[in-house]
Amino acid sequence: MTTPAADGFRMPPEWAPHERTWMAWPGPNPTFDDPEDLAASRIAWAAVARAVRRFEPVTVVCGPGQAAEARALLGEGVETVERELDDAWMRDIGPTFLTDGRGGLAAVDWTFNGWGAQSWARWEHDAKIGAHVADLAGALTYTSALVNEGGGIHVDGEGTVLLTETVQLGPERNPGWTKERVEAEVHAHLGTSKAIWLPRGLTSDYPPYGFGTLGHVDIVAAFAAPGVVVAHHQPDPAHPDHEVTKEAIGILRAATDAHGRPLEVVEVPAPTVLEADGHWADYSYINHYLCNGGVVLCGFDDPRDEVAAGIFRRLHPGRTVTLVDARTIFAGGGGIHCITQQQPKI
């Protein structure tokens, strides 16, 4: 059976030009089980969609019968389609898009099991959204047996991918898979050749805290350019993520990419708030989204919002940095990167 890499496809970096951004609309489910939470989440998702729409087309997948209400909040210029949904995290339930440099568009439809079959998760419909979106985009679809989500990977476009051991190697997702088997599957589907493994994600991404992913990398570290990584830094030793991020930053500083280059690690300090919703806050500026000419950055009404914005302006001088309040999104278990999925331009 052929693979994307064997057919010449690879996952472009997020900073490469986009055709559009895909999102999913929050609907009634265990993540938004309170009507007030659902209403607040829809307002937050719509704010992100409008921020992205300033830079590129946006299509929002809505549950049956929800598109008209969604359009009222999304405003002019945001497209909607209706498909059965369970949750609203398009980064994770949607496809990972690939290009071949010759005008071809493909997508990886990873196996999805509700972030490790967690008790609160529902995924009967979300497990099919990757294939639906790939079909809507006109992409050639490759399926993978690896249980994985888009938030669990980050690539530099030049052969390097970031992973976390508690995600791809976790027994909740891929029992019995070795690191070598995971790497082979990832490389075959992303066109990468070098994996850099972090041991875990942030503290609140695991039980008993909220709706976690069990360690997604896109809240901890992300490529900003080939050889350059932005990394979450919790400077307060009172927060357990102080040690978590110290370890991750140390691993990244000691790593080399697929071309043998040492990584330049740019530390981005966490917001000053230490607790949210009764547990340790996992607020992170790393969970940003790069779109055509823009950076849509998580805001937390925090003194460090502008510090982070300044860092991203320096890293992306040709892009407009837009802060969007992400506290409601984080209360649901993710951030701006988690609710967006890029379709690259071919």
Rank of each mutant, 00 (worst) to 15 (best):
R313K: 13
T256L: 15
E275D: 15
F97K: 04
G103Q: 12
P17K: 11
E84P: 07
V182W: 02
P171E: 13
D156P: 11
I251A: 14
R42G: 00
Y206V: 05
W123E: 04
G250E: 15
G27C: 13
R253H: 13
Y285V: 03
E56M: 08
V147K: 03
L190Y: 03
V307T: 12
G77H: 10
L274S: 11
T192Y: 09
E243F: 15
D37L: 11
G151T: 03
E56S: 07
R42Y: 01
H337I: 04
I336E: 00
N113P: 12
V321T: 08
D305P: 03
T59S: 11
R304P: 06
P208A: 09
A121C: 14
H187R: 08
R42E: 00
G159I: 03
R181G: 05
R319F: 13
H242K: 14
A276Y: 08
D87R: 00
V265Q: 05
A238R: 15
H189G: 01
T3A: 14
G201P: 02
G159K: 04
P262S: 15
P64G: 05
L263E: 04
A281S: 14
G334D: 02
A40E: 08
G138D: 12
R181F: 15
P17F: 14
H125N: 14
G260H: 11
G250R: 11
D92E: 10
R50H: 09
Q66S: 08
P262T: 08
L202D: 00
I219V: 14
D257A: 08
V52T: 04
A40M: 08
E165H: 06
L85M: 13
G138R: 06
V161Q: 04
D34N: 13
T31K: 10
N113V: 09
G116C: 07
R20K: 14
R200S: 13
W45E: 00
R181M: 11
P237N: 14
A67N: 06
T80K: 07
I311Y: 02
Q234T: 13
G170I: 04
Y209Q: 13
A309C: 08
S193N: 10
P269Y: 05
